[in-house]
Design a protein around this nucleic acid. Structure first.
Lengths: 225, 225
DNA sequence: TATATGTATTTTGTATACAATGTTTGACTC
DNA sequence: GAGTCAAACATTGTATACAAAATACATATA
């Protein structure tokens, strides 16, 4: 029998996915601002591909709510009003509550240990001053909880909802005044899950999200000036 | 000034949307079964269009979780295992609870009246024996609640989650034994919203969904034989 | 000046062509 | 007969061509 060398030749990604990821990130980070037109030919030449993968990527963005296309007029980057953000956070609150409740039931010892590690890592990242690292560490903390739900659909929905406000999260982290609060919220959530205290942890996560509502509201108002 | 005649020339829909809707319905109704390949050329000739709109529609289906594509191999209809269905219903329960709670706060008198009408209409539809009409009336009842949330994102998510189990809903309605229970559940939900009794109506909707979990589980087991 | 109107340009919608990869089949070897 | 290989075929990936609609712009007209 021939030896099977797994060289992982998975370097290949269809161009549509490359384009999709590129545009997605650009939108979430705010490099492409709301209302901006997504013109196929222009994007195609900028990214060095033909219109076909661009069009397919736009269809995907559309489905995720990141772009809006008007037939025969073209696509634009979807905007997020304060109302939109409130709506998203309302949904997120419900699903985050669900996820911690399920996590209380299903989380494994290994995952609890991982949660503790990621909480510590987030704490360290705050001292580093590296915004990207903070955001990443924050994501990783919450991800452990998501993963513990063992519900892939829920995980992807939560990730999606969270990414929708990436730019505001980063802004939030810029202000060191917020760090202590974030940390203690994470700790409270961790302790709640450790104790499998569903009611308590539900309350903690609700506050964690509701704080974000306030922050995001404030930022949107600033931005709209 | 010239009179403005709104002739509503909106008859036009891009082919990609026509294809998307067609395939989507076919999948949700079970006409296209899980695992079935979605071959571009074949679909194109069957629907009388070129590959381009087919490909774009597949990208959209993919994003909704209704199709899975493996690069350079093609797309297949996504399957739903019992686990998948449980996962979806877990999410749906959380969001349905959210929606009735918000509805208790925000619902208008007009919407309450509409809810009553749609409840009655559902009752009548049960006597008609017309499955499609029943399913439609059921949808319309719940839609009033969704609309009352005034959260478009939530509405579209709930509609999407609901549609994912369309085929099972229809099966469920086929059995007249279930009719009385459905009706009394609807009535309980209606009364709860009328009384703005959040806790009560949350409990009702939870049971309404959890009944579906049982039914769907049972059906999937039947089907897998 | 303000408003039509006609034409050129841009942009999207759809179809098709070509390239690259995957799959099948059948001859060939052992 | 099982396994290998290569050629033929099928299918997806990407680019391009052509059609149709929207837009921009210049001109004419009141």
């Amino acid at each position: 029998m021939t030896e099977h060398l797994e060289l992982n030749m998975d370097a290949y990604l269809p161009l549509r996915d490359v384009v999709f990821n590129t545009l997605r990130e650009a939108i979430l980070k705010g490099d492409l601002v709301a209302g901006e037109r997504l013109m196929e030919l222009q994007l195609a030449s900028k990214l060095g591909v033909s219109r076909t993968p661009i069009r397919e990527a736009i269809r995907m963005l559309e489905q995720e709510g990141l772009a809006i296309t008007i037939p025969r007029k073209g696509a634009i980057v979807a905007g997020m009003t304060e109302k939109d953000m409130q709506d998203v956070l309302q949904i997120r609150e419900a699903l985050e509550e669900l996820s911690v409740q399920v996590a209380c039931d299903k989380i494994t010892d290994g995952e609890i240990e991982q949660l503790r590690k990621n909480m510590k890592n987030f704490e360290h990242s705050l001292k580093s001053g590296d915004l990207k690292r903070m955001a990443q560490a924050d994501v990783e903390f919450h991800d452990v909880i998501y993963q513990a739900t063992d519900n892939p659909k829920l995980i992807s929905m939560l990730n999606n909802l969270r990414e929708q406000m990436y730019r505001y999260r980063v802004e939030y982290l810029k202000n060191p005044e917020n760090h202590q609060q974030l940390l203690s919220e994470h700790e409270a959530i961790y302790r709640g899950i450790l104790a499998k205290d569903k009611a308590g942890v539900t309350d903690k996560i609700r506050r964690h999200i509701s704080n974000q509502v306030d922050v995001v509201k404030h930022m949107i108002r600033e931005q709209e000036k």
